[in-house]
Write a protein that binds this DNA or RNA. Structure first.
Length: 294
DNA sequence: TATGAGCGA
């Protein structure tokens, strides 16, 4: 929009209607802007001069109160989230004590070494250490449950019930209380089954919960990896292991894998929900796995 | 196409 300047000058100048960029900016005629404060009370004054709509020079004093400290400003939603009930390991935390926590959940992604790589085996002459184990099944003592000659520690059916690392930062205080109540000396080991909240089952009939509840997933796309499977299955319950079969030569997925659940019911729900589920343009097949032979 | 690697006291 362009104004007829001569007409404008005949009446009063209407500065406010002038375009900023047409070179008619007369602000340089005005005294500079002044800022006073903020003082110790957080009061800040800004004095500036402007032309008003009628072309008169006016002084504008703005008084504001500023925050003394730049305190984090929470959005309404963030405030709302702070009121949510804590869940998981965080239920033992005081309200508002910590906003985030590291998950203590441990999930095994089976990838001992990159597919296609070989272990360098350097055998020293006269090294007969391997022979020592021959015919000596007694050497095979599970470090978790103590059973001899049945399985190695890593295959222990009670592996999931193994002690948590001592002094763990997120260990609920309840465990310590239970130890004290049981008359144990301070710092003494409390078996998981004896800790507060552990379900009491008949001693000999502990619930097996490791290699069981194995679910086979077939018709996976080539680029589905273990983390993808974990993401897909963890919504049904605690997953203890995820495995995707990889061709050792080519390194590509063989299109099937396994997911182990801690709880059988969760595995069952996953099978019901995910069998026939479309994933990466393929229809998944999800069913119970037959135990691996070994 | 189709039921898993690896390590030992």
């Amino acid at each position: 929009m362009s104004l007829d300047k001569s007409a404008l000058n005949q009446t009063k100048l209407r500065w406010g209607e002038l375009d900023e960029d047409d070179g008619e900016d007369l602000d340089f005629l005005l005294p500079p802007k002044q800022v006073i404060g903020p003082d110790e009370n957080g009061i800040k004054k800004v004095i500036e001069y402007k032309f008003n709509d009628d072309g008169d020079k006016v002084k504008i004093t703005t008084t504001t109160r500023v925050r003394k400290l730049a305190k984090a400003r929470l959005s309404k939603k963030a405030v709302e989230r702070r009121n949510w009930a804590k869940f998981g390991d965080a239920v033992h935390e005081d309200v508002g004590s910590r906003l985030t926590m590291v998950s203590t959940e441990e999930i095994l992604l089976e990838r001992p070494r990159a597919p296609g790589t070989k272990v360098e085996e350097t055998k020293l002459p006269g090294d007969n250490l391997a022979q020592l184990g021959k015919g000596g099944a007694v050497l095979m003592v599970c470090r978790t449950c103590g059973k001899k000659g049945d399985h190695w520690t890593s295959r222990c059916p009670y592996k999931d019930l193994a002690p948590q690392p001592e002094g763990f930062i997120d260990k609920p205080a309840a465990a310590d209380n239970a130890a004290a109540a049981a008359g144990a000396t301070k710092g003494a080991y409390v078996p998981p089954s004896m800790r507060a909240g552990a379900e009491r089952t008949g001693g000999s009939d502990m619930r097996r919960r490791n290699e069981e509840n194995s679910v086979r997933v077939t018709n996976l796309s080539e680029d589905t990896r273990e983390p993808d499977l974990l993401e897909l299955f963890r919504t049904f319950g605690q997953v203890s292991r995820v495995y995707v079969a990889i061709d050792q030569k080519t390194g590509v997925s063989r299109g099937f894998g396994f997911v182990n659940f801690v709880n059988k019911e969760d595995a069952e729900r996953a099978i019901n929900k995910l069998n026939g589920y479309g994933y990466d343009n393929l229809i998944l097949r999800v069913e119970w796995a037959t135990p691996r032979s070994n």
